[in-house]
């Protein structure tokens, strides 16, 4: 019966994940392999294709003063809009974790404040391959080389995420594995300022058991996968720390840049 409970928990997290996140790894891989029957993504690999892509791709939000803004700032603003959207999706997912909404409300805020970027970078890996990443819900594909060719400091934003993604994708996780993993990440009992750690650790413990069983069943040939995946949590913290430092630099040096209020809240006093 205990393992039946853990399987039910895994199934529940997978269903919430599919409900909360519009693009899954399976969908992203199908788009990249051209197996969806839709148009293939528009490839952005230089300034001309960027311009053509901006006309062709239907973006969810069109930031104001777009035309006259520098390319790097435009790309960065779109990243911000997508991040804000992702925070909303992750919040919705977190609320579906059994017991999460019964935690102290301050602790819910803390868990999201520290967890959302680790979740964003875990899930971003699903949209990436070694050559680039899917953008705008799979309508576009921006190459890694193009992102590297942007002026400093913007060229430094995505490269560490690609490096992490290549290692993370090497684990061969499926969407159900990822769903449970991000729930484990959110329920980290060692975030600074938590008031009531014990119930968080208890929730995380049952999700960890569900993850261990899930990996055993879906990857019977990789007995070390659970341990390897838990090690990735350390890498994620490192990436977020570097990301926050880079954003501080950008805010100091780029007068034109504005940071969305939700992201300001999250980054303030983070690390």
């Amino acid at each position: 019966p205990e393992s039946a409970d853990l399987r039910a928990l895994a199934k529940h997290m997978f269903e919430s994940y599919n409900k909360a996140f519009p693009i899954t790894k399976a969908k992203s891989r199908a788009i990249m392999a051209g197996k969806t029957g839709d148009k293939s993504p528009f490839v952005i690999y230089d300034m001309n294709s960027l311009k053509a892509g901006e006309e062709r791709i239907k973006f969810k939000q069109t930031p104001l003063q777009e035309q006259n803004t520098e390319v790097e700032i435009r790309i960065f603003q779109r990243c911000q809009f997508r991040s804000v959207e992702a925070v909303r999706e992750i919040t919705e997912f977190a609320k579906s974790i059994p017991g999460f909404i019964n935690l102290d409300l301050n602790d819910q805020v803390t868990l999201l404040k520290y967890g959302v970027h680790e979740v964003i970078f875990s899930m971003l890996a699903s949209l990436m391959n070694k050559d680039g990443l899917l953008i705008a819900a799979g309508q576009g594909f921006m190459t890694r080389e193009f992102l590297k060719s942007l002026r400093k400091p913007f060229c430094d934003i995505m490269e560490p995420k690609f490096e992490f993604a290549m290692k993370f994708n090497g684990l061969g996780l499926n969407d159900c594995d990822i769903a449970i993993f991000i729930a484990v990440v959110i329920l980290s009992g060692d975030r600074p300022g938590l008031i009531n750690v014990k119930p968080i650790e208890e929730l995380q413990d049952s999700i960890l058991q569900a993850l261990a069983l899930q990996l055993k069943i879906s990857h019977p040939d990789s007995p070390q996968l659970f341990a390897k995946l838990l090690q990735k949590m350390t890498d994620l913290r490192q990436i977020v720390t570097e990301h926050v430092q880079l954003l501080h630099t950008i805010r100091k040096t780029e007068a034109e840049m504005s940071l969305h209020p939700l992201l300001q809240e999250i980054y303030k006093d983070l690390y």
């Binding site: 804000v84 925070v87 909303r88 919040t91 999201l112 939700l262 809240e265």
Partner: peptide, 21 residues
């Protein structure tokens, strides 16, 4: 903490509320 994280707090209460994208 809630005061310093008004939007996050609002999303937790009602994730359909607008965040002024």
């Amino acid at each position: 903490l809630k005061e310093k994280h008004k939007i996050l707090h609002r999303l937790l209460q009602d994730s359909t509320s607008p965040v002024d994208l």
